[in-house]
C-alpha cells in the first residue's frame, strides 16, 4: 500500500512537471532570464503548488501519524547557516547553467536524450561528493 501510494504520488508529480513546462530546459532558462526576454509562465508552477501545500499542510502537520500509520517525518533542522546558503547558492548556479532542477531532470529521462542522462549521472556524482564533504 505504501509502495503503491508512493508510485502514484511520483506519477502525479511527474505529470505535473511535464504539464507545467518544467521538463523543458528552454522554458526554465527563459523563466530565469529575468533581465532579458523573461518568460514569466513558470511563476505559476511554484505559485500553484505552494497554494496547495500552504493550505493542506497546516492540517496534515497536526497529525501524529500518516493515514497509512507511518510516523510523520518532518525536517527538524531550522538552522539558516553557511551550509544552507552555500548549498542553495551552488544549486541555483547549476540550475541556471543547464535548466534542470532534480525533479524535472529525473522526469525528463524518459525522453531518452543523452544530455539528460549525463546531467542525472553528474547530479548523483555531485550528491556523493557533497556527502563526503559533509562527513569531513
Amino acid at each position: 500500500m505504501k509502495g503503491l501510494t508512493a508510485l502514484l504520488c511520483g506519477i502525479l508529480f511527474g505529470i505535473g512537471l511535464a504539464v507545467s513546462g518544467m521538463t523543458d530546459t528552454a522554458k526554465v532558462l527563459g523563466f530565469l532570464d529575468l533581465f532579458g526576454s523573461w518568460v514569466p509562465d513558470l511563476v505559476f508552477v511554484m505559485g500553484g503548488a505552494v497554494c496547495v501545500t500552504l493550505v493542506a499542510f497546516r492540517f496534515i502537520m497536526k497529525r501524529d501519524r500518516s493515514l497509512l500509520g507511518e510516523l510523520m517525518s518532518l525536517p527538524s533542522n531550522t538552522a539558516i547557516d553557511g551550509r544552507l546558503l552555500a548549498g542553495a547558492a551552488i544549486f541555483g548556479i547549476g540550475w541556471g547553467v543547464y535548466g534542470y532542477c532534480p525533479g524535472p531532470a529525473i522526469s525528463a529521462l524518459g525522453y531518452l536524450e543523452t544530455n539528460t542522462a549525463i546531467f542525472v549521472v553528474a547530479m548523483l556524482v555531485g550528491m556523493a561528493l557533497a556527502n563526503r564533504v559533509g562527513r569531513a
Binding site: A86, Y100, P102, G126
Partner: peptide, 15 residues
C-alpha cells in the same frame, strides 16, 4: 549538462 548536474547535485545535498 555535466557542469550543471554536478552543481545541482552538490548544492542540493549540501543545502
Amino acid at each position: 549538462a555535466v557542469l550543471g548536474g554536478l552543481l545541482v547535485g552538490f548544492g542540493t545535498k549540501l543545502g
